[in-house]
Simulated assay, not measured.
Amino acid sequence: MKHNFKFSQIGILALLFVTVLSCSTDEKQQVTTLNKLVLEDNFDVNGAPDAALWGFDIGNGAAEGIPGWGNNELQYYTDRSENVVVEDGMLKITAIKENFQGSGFTSARLLTKGKFQKKFGRFEARIKLPWGQGLWPAFWMLGDDENGTVSWPQRGEIDIMENRGQEPTITHGSVHGPGYSGANAVTKSYDLVTERLDTEFHVYGIEWGPDYINYYIDDVLFNQITPESNGLNGEWVFNDREFYMLLNVAVGGSFVGAPNQNTVFPQTMHVDYIRVYE
């Protein structure tokens, strides 16, 4: 599988995020009600993640021609139980500080590519994030690449949740596409202010239709992106293909910087469930 997406090219370090409390009054707030459950993983069977739903990206990106996953990341992704396991009724993705295959850290990245892909719907996960300088947890989606014939960003990317581990109250929601990728992604952040993302579970989700993507944390609509959104200076590529989901914890990278002496390892992202509705 050719990985010409997300961490490989987006250069997300230069994104300028705006902290907000909700959608602005001048934004079109199209709230939908999607309640037909079409996929649910409650991670209630101990062991490896369900192989019928989840695959893995393995390595440091070098095999794909993008060492450091194209973003100066420091981890080597594995499918070892030390890095990814289902237990206690949840999926646990753990970043470890260790020398492994030439890298100084290990972690895991899971994806539903070729196993579950869908166009439109509500995609949500209940997650408790890791914490610390240099940690980069994410829950996101990529458009199907049609067997490698459509490259990133033409096939689109929807970042449901991204977090800088050193900012434990802030989540980010973004899209990337042709003309608005990398440093020019369309994005917004949300600051819980009085609550943290690493000490409590929160539900991160999107509701996605042909001409809108709504971003939620818990019951708060904090962002809506449409073909008319400011900064979307290119083709809207979110109405013509199925997308698949990804979960990962990166270590280092241009978006978060390297861990420092105060970053405690191991660090784990706990995923209570993933659900998809239409």
Rank of each mutant, 00 (worst) to 15 (best):
E40T: 13
D57G: 04
R241N: 11
V203A: 00
K36V: 10
S8F: 02
D219P: 04
I66F: 11
V175G: 03
V85A: 09
R155Q: 06
L37V: 09
P49Q: 03
D26P: 02
E124K: 02
G173M: 00
G231D: 06
D144G: 08
G11V: 05
E242F: 11
T187C: 10
A63G: 12
P168V: 02
N184W: 00
P67Y: 14
Y212D: 01
N4G: 09
K128C: 13
A258F: 02
M269W: 14
E162H: 08
W208N: 05
L129D: 02
Y216T: 01
E64T: 12
N223S: 14
N262G: 13
V251Q: 02
R122S: 05
S103K: 01
A250L: 05
G102F: 09
P137T: 11
I160N: 08
S189E: 00
S181F: 02
T19K: 12
G59E: 11
A125Q: 10
Y204R: 03
V237N: 04
P178R: 10
Y244E: 00
T268Q: 13
P130C: 06
F105I: 03
A52H: 15
V85H: 14
M161W: 04
M141R: 04
G165P: 07
P137N: 11
L111Y: 06
T199A: 15
T78G: 11
T149E: 15
W152C: 03
N46V: 10
E124L: 05
Q29F: 06
D41C: 02
F116M: 10
S107Y: 03
E167D: 14
V150T: 05
M1D: 11
T112Y: 05
G156I: 03
T268A: 13
F100A: 09
Q117Y: 07
F238I: 04
P227N: 14
A258R: 14
F43N: 01
G205F: 10
Y190I: 14
Y215P: 05
A138K: 00
A138Q: 01
I158F: 01
I217P: 07
